[in-house]
Design a protein around this nucleic acid. Sequence first.
DNA 1: GTCTATACGTTGATAGAC
DNA 2: GTCTATCAACGTATAGAC
Lengths: 188, 188
Amino acid sequence: MDTQSTVREQLLDHAITLMMLRGYNGFSYRDLSELVGVKTSSIHYYFPSKDDLVLEAVKQYSEEVVRALQSIDPALPANEKLSLYTRFFGKTLGDGNQICLCGMLAADIETLPETVREAVQAFFRTNEAWLAKVLAQGVEEGTLVAKGKPESAARTLFAALQGSVIASRLFHTKSRLEDVEAMWRVAA
Amino acid sequence: MDTQSTVREQLLDHAITLMMLRGYNGFSYRDLSELVGVKTSSIHYYFPSKDDLVLEAVKQYSEEVVRALQSIDPALPANEKLSLYTRFFGKTLGDGNQICLCGMLAADIETLPETVREAVQAFFRTNEAWLAKVLAQGVEEGTLVAKGKPESAARTLFAALQGSVIASRLFHTKSRLEDVEAMWRVAA
DNA sequence: GTCTATACGTTGATAGAC
DNA sequence: GTCTATCAACGTATAGAC
């Protein structure tokens, strides 16, 4: 509830939402100010510069995703794990035409400081490592297919998911994400 | 040569380059003004609004890519066609850390007018249709692998390429694009 | 912590002289 | 076609009162 969360939390949440929609250069302290109901000068109290704000946003977003990954039962078959992952990857799409924060910031990366690049890289590596494990498990079980090393396949899969969530929004459809998942599943 | 091209051509070329680097909201008429050597008011003579400029940029970029696709010898085996495609897809990466203009604009799409969305969609469809044909050919020849319908596989492949070029820039490496290509090649 | 006030460059855009 | 001049709005950011 907004009435329970602190101003700082609201600012961070709305900043994340806005960036997932319009990107780093597509939102302003004023937008945030109007959404949360504080003056822009108050935002600077919590986040001295916009760079500070993005960095905190990436950190919080990454933690949320890690928690989501940990919430997936390790005992599940790999194809079901991938299914859950794909679903929550595309969840924000239906909510408000949003894409993955770190996919968006990767597009904006040349306008961002090095600290943000490193945080976004860390996010990519975490997700790719998790997917690599799932792919390895799936190959062993016979529920997923993955050519070559699991690490390479995972990088390609993650890139396909990032690209698909962008294309899904572009075309106002969700099916493109499902196309990706189907490509790594064992044919029925 | 810059000395041969018209001011309009220079403006469009630099606008494309800048957007491939920083995105739509990451460059200004002033940037363009300094690069080309005319005042910002002169840019408005050619492109009344920034929206006009993006739309023209997408159209020119799309034409260039179509020409590149047509320059690929239809007689080539499918795996070699894909290799050429992957190479020119990642070419701008080495030049100046640029990603595909339409991949970038797809990320910025929620801040752009509907006309641009349609132009970017058209670009996606053109590329996916071309890839679908190549995949179909490759499956028949036995040089490429593609699960399911060629159209679905092509959408996934294109998304993977778009995602990979973004990730490649993020990590300052080109190998991620090659990972993608390898995934669709028949194992040696 | 939050506000008012303010600084100051940037932005896209227009009017009109040449 | 290109310029000068100008615009109002917006951008991030700071100082200081409360």
